[in-house]
Nucleic acid binder design. Structure first.
Lengths: 341, 341
DNA sequence: ATGAAAGCGCTAACAT
DNA sequence: ATGTTAGCGCTTTCAT
């Protein structure tokens, strides 16, 4: 009586429905080779018993887990959060669970997480990589687990990849600042070993050099190194810059705080453009001009591609999808949009 | 030769190490009843073969999955994101995976997700509930799956609960605004069926009434209903209010946008206090005064309690943990903190 | 269209 | 300290 609810198995269902185990199984997987009548009877028995299939058992036999892994560096980043949401939504449609882990941008941690995922027999991985190296994926690759890499591509790996036009977008943003007449533009980025960062830096450089100006870069190993003290030499004195271009959301946050701490005003003291949009960008006076990445779309595409890959019969070539960005002019670049006139 | 990497099982390990299956199993679980020497030999064999244990199989047998579920309404909310991070960190320490799902605040979706989790034999659940009803938990409760409810308690359910002092904190925030001399204070909240919302409203009301003022409330079914149009009657005309108290992060975002759209300034037009702190609160002039919830601490405690519950031998009474909040005075309430003088 | 039997990879009794 | 024997709950041959 007490442990009954613990252990309603397909066998119980089959018994109640007066069919064999296999027939019950067929009903569970709504196999076509089953008389609708029989199926209905089994379904009723399931209902009656409150039967819940055991995914572990199904997966063990079928060598799939109906779960995908998603590994991201930082959930606090709204770009990441939006992408995670998108992946979850797609996963739900296909009845897959999402096992989420944060790497904190640490490649070793990421690898550890991936290994744990492997042991769980995950059916696929959406990875926002902590490094551009492929070494972390060896295990997965060897096991033929589909992977979609997203935001941060992998060097020389034949893996599905969803990215944005990092270089071009960064170049465009820089050109916009240059067009306003600013020559000494500081680019602030983190984790320069990442493709995203290096591409954005490259775009920035090419724009600056085309304009005959000198690149001024503050690139730190990790965003957390970005202290007000580090920034202050660029905010006053002989090395004062004329404008700032932050290369991702966390950098934007850090720079804004540093400016605040130094009692510097955006635009009047330092015109600024941010790579990455966020909820309140328009509320920071005079409104932050940003490069907006299609976060939700990126996540959606990543998941779509992953599920396609998971259900494909023979191996297709890797897909490389590159999405565009939106340049959203608010006030911080020097433009005067209506809202702030 | 080809499918070898697919199927390295404990049997293979045992064979290579020249021991029995069970001995290999013991090594895997580093059981004490094993000669270190033997254990080492098995471990070496595992290494050599690149063996990865199959968690599905382990779980099937042991009736545990080494995974916990976490269900939250909205990942975009920084409060939620921080809590998720905290839970993940604790879970990692104990070797548990976190299966994350978003309910979008929809009780039906939440129930569907819980059911899927159940099928995966999750060992426990951390729930940021979409409703205060217990019905969604019946299945879990019946199966004796440990649950920790967090942020939003469940009516009359004997479940571990981690919350903050919603009522008291809301009362304190309201009193602060009243002390500044504002009488007509608008409270803006969403999903009033939630305990958190109703408690905060209750705190607000009791403060307002004690001051001999009238409560003015804008409570919508869902945050997404909070449009500028809905808000505008309170921003001008005969029903104009003197100050605003937003009851959670999303409401704060919505109100800030509405104010912006209506070209109203914080403080000068409308003093404001927000329940929930966030990254840029100090950057929105004149700095947002907020009630800060200890998001990370909440998540941490929730996970801790869950794991304690999971490993307990005999059932202990439910724990109700209530954490305090911090009232952070910046400028928007009418105070003039140093930073903005 | 349905059933019987075997076994996925592992752990848990019980030996020895 | 180590091995043997059963299964966990399900899906999958292969019969019927």
């Amino acid at each position: 009586m007490k442990t009954k609810s613990d252990s309603i198995t397909l066998v119980d269902v089959a018994r109640l429905a007066g069919v064999s185990l296999k027939t019950a199984s067929r009903a569970l997987n709504d196999s076509p080779e089953l008389r609708p009548e029989t199926g209905a009877r089994v379904l009723k028995a399931m209902e009656q018993l409150g039967y819940q299939p055991n995914e572990l058992a199904r997966g063990l036999k079928a060598k799939r887990s109906a779960a995908i892994a998603m590994i991201v560096p930082n959930l606090a980043d709204p770009f990441t959060a939006a992408a995670v949401q998108a992946v979850q939504d797609v996963a739900r449609e296909t009845g897959h669970a999402v096992i989420l882990a944060s790497s904190g941008g640490d490649a070793a941690l990421e690898e550890a997480e991936l290994q744990i995922m492997l042991r769980r027999q995950i059916d696929g991985v959406v990875l926002m990589a902590a490094s551009s190296g492929k070494s972390n994926l060896k295990l997965l690759l060897a096991r033929n687990v589909p992977i979609v890499v997203f935001d941060e591509p992998l060097r020389g790996e034949e893996v599905d990849t969803i990215t944005v036009t990092n270089r071009k977008s960064a170049r465009g943003a820089t050109e916009h600042l240059l067009a306003h007449g600013y020559k000494r533009i500081l680019a602030v980025g983190a984790r320069p070993h990442l493709y995203t960062c290096s591409e954005r830096v490259a775009g920035y450089r090419s724009a600056v050099k085309s304009a005959g100006a000198e690149p001024i870069e503050l690139l730190v190993q990790h965003e957390s190194d970005l202290t007000p003290e580090l920034l202050s030499p660029f905010l006053s004195g002989p090395n004062r810059v004329e404008a700032i271009f932050t290369l991702n959301w966390v950098c934007t946050m850090r720079v804004l705080r540093a400016l605040n701490a130094a009692k510097k005003k955006i635009l009047t003291d330092f015109p600024l453009v941010s790579f990455d949009d966020f909820e309140l960008a328009e509320m920071i006076p005079p409104g932050l001009t940003v490069v907006r990445q299609p976060a939700h779309e990126l996540g959606h595409q990543a998941a779509k591609v992953l599920f396609e890959r998971m259900s494909e019969t023979k191996r297709q070539p890797a897909r490389k999808i590159v999405l565009g960005t939106e340049f959203i002019v608010r006030g911080s670049c020097g433009c005067k949009p209506k809202a702030w006139e």
